[in-house]
């Protein structure tokens, strides 16, 4: 095999070094590149959620005070069925006017609570406070609480849940 390298400019040793570098790079590439794909692939395949979730009868919610509604969704993550829980505050401003807010703090995703005395949603992590319609009153959150699109069908509230 090494006889091919009989040309005066290329010694047998140099030839074998070139072959080795070449074969080595091929092996490195054929294992290395797939491994990169292997590592990042779960990040590229996330399941989308696009659903209308029922929050029950509109009449079940009091006017003027936010009420928490919790529900879960299950997704497939790898070999597991991951159940995520969601919480929304439903504020009925009048008989038909609603605000539906996610209970996830816009700062670092802690779950906020409605504190009646303060008339505010309070985040337990960094003491942030949000007003009854989600405006930031105090603390580090960068934006108001996230609002859900909603519709009312047959007296039931449905919210539009999207993810991914």
């Amino acid at each position: 095999m090494a006889k091919k390298a009989s040309s005066p400019n290329l010694s047998r040793r140099d030839f074998s070094k070139i072959v080795m570098a070449f074969l080595g790079s091929i092996m490195g590439a054929f294992v290395g590149l797939p491994i990169i794909g292997y590592i990042i692939s779960p990040a590229l395949k996330t399941q989308k959620i696009d659903d209308w979730v029922s929050l029950g009868a509109l009449d079940g919610y009091p006017i003027g005070t936010p009420k928490l509604f919790s529900f879960t969704r299950t997704k497939v993550n790898g070999w597991e069925r991951t159940t995520n829980s969601f919480g929304v505050f439903v504020l009925r401003k009048s008989a038909s006017d609603l605000v539906v807010l996610s209970n996830v703090c816009t700062h670092l995703s802690c779950r906020v609570k409605w504190i009646e005395e303060n008339q505010a949603y309070v985040c337990p992590c960094h003491d942030a406070e949000f007003g009854i319609e989600g405006k930031v009153l105090y603390g580090p959150p960068p934006r108001p609480m996230d609002e859900y699109e909603f519709k009312i069908e047959d007296g039931n509230i449905l919210i539009h849940l999207t993810e991914g």
């Binding site: 095999m1 090494a2 040793r13 074998s16 072959v19 080795m20 074969l23 080595g24 091929i26 092996m27």
Partner: peptide, 16 residues
């Protein structure tokens, strides 16, 4: 190096 390693690498590459 490089004679023995050259042979080794060719065999390893074939196995690869």
């Amino acid at each position: 190096w490089p004679d023995i390693i050259y042979k080794d690498l060719i065999v390893s590459f074939a196995l690869f």
